[in-house]
Nucleic acid binder design. Structure first.
Lengths: 191, 191
DNA sequence: CTGGCGTGTCAACACCTGTTGGCCTACGAT
DNA sequence: ATCGTAGGCCAACAGGTGTTGACACGCCAG
């Protein structure tokens, strides 16, 4: 028998992981077009053809490199007034610790598959959370989109465009400014 | 004498303008890398080498195609309470009528020159306006960056990523939601 | 009329891209 | 010990990119 248990560690797992890590970094730093398979392979110390073997093509590689769990905290059990601050703080952390978010942002702007991924991530992972705290559940998608617009806008200014005042602003100050905005988008009566 | 008045209309002006228009559309639709000189030339019904003759290289073409005047209205003479709404409405109009803004956004995310241009445009054209209405003029850059984060974030969601709820939201509703945010970023006491 | 210059086309260059198929190596089950 | 196979490298392909230089047309000044 040559069959193995499906979860058995294969020798190539390390290579696959190295490719994925290099891909995430390149996509985050350069966007879709400029993140070439050759550059990713060089970073991972392997041959470009390995990327094709394990991920099919560049689209497949991006799909694999852009899976992400936002880990949005459950807001139901929180003191109502702190929802905005908790959410903003959480996203700042996520953005600074996980290249995938910057990659998603950089790629989504010029690549259709990337944009679709971005839409799906926020709809599936932020939408339900919003539904749990906003007054009328039917409004959840709209409110989640408003929150996303502010979160993504700050991420864009701070981590991608690197607008000087947005970069130098201390983390606490960003939270202090954005928290009431997010709080209002989620919980306020429709204006 | 072969010299002419500097403002004399040359026969090539129409060509230059056609190139510029095609370039703006392509940059806005595709970003920097995918907006190829060949595609732009095809749109303008001329030979790719003409682009080089008149704009030097691709960087020069982008520089020429990305000059923009935000036409931010003077807010000093306005009823204080409406500053946010006027500003948000103005930017929505600008974004829908001028491809350059979408182009700047799409290019700035993956191209350094584009990011620099975006930073400069907002610092030079939004900064002074903010300085005129915020309580402490020294805080103007930070407040302008906050406003930019929300404006850019909504533009990203609505016109670039095309997040469904952000696209379908009526213009008036976008204004109603974002106006208080922008208003607060500009005029509220530091939190 | 005639020459020069502005306008435009064509073909080619050197390079880089994603992707493919063949070949070699070495591990691990038999 | 051996043999199939998974893991890996190399060289090449077809296509697309920015960019360049040589060449042709036609307008306008002299």
């Amino acid at each position: 028998m040559t069959t193995k248990a499906p979860g058995a560690p294969r020798r190539s797992d390390a290579t696959k992981a190295a490719i994925l890590e290099a891909a995430r970094e390149r996509f985050a730093a350069d966007g879709y077009e400029r993140a070439t398979i050759r550059a990713i392979a060089r970073d991972a110390n392997i041959d470009p053809s390995m990327v094709m073997r394990y991920y099919g093509n560049k689209e497949g590689l991006f799909a694999a490199a852009s899976v992400i769990d936002l880990r949005v905290p459950e807001l139901g059990a929180l003191p109502g007034k702190h929802i905005g601050a908790v959410l903003v703080a959480h996203f700042l952390d996520r953005w600074e610790q996980d290249d995938v978010l910057t990659g998603l942002l950089r790629v989504g702007v010029t690549n259709d598959a990337g944009a679709e991924r971005m839409r799906a991530v926020f709809a599936e992972q932020l939408g339900p959370i919003a539904a749990g705290v906003c007054p009328v559940p039917a409004e959840a998608p709209r409110r989640a989109a408003l929150v996303a617009s502010q979160i993504l806008g700050m991420a864009l200014a701070r981590y991608v465009l690197r607008v000087a005042p947005a970069v130098s602003m201390p983390r606490d100050e960003v939270i202090a400014w954005l928290a009431p905005t997010v709080q209002r988008y989620l919980t306020a009566e429709q204006p």
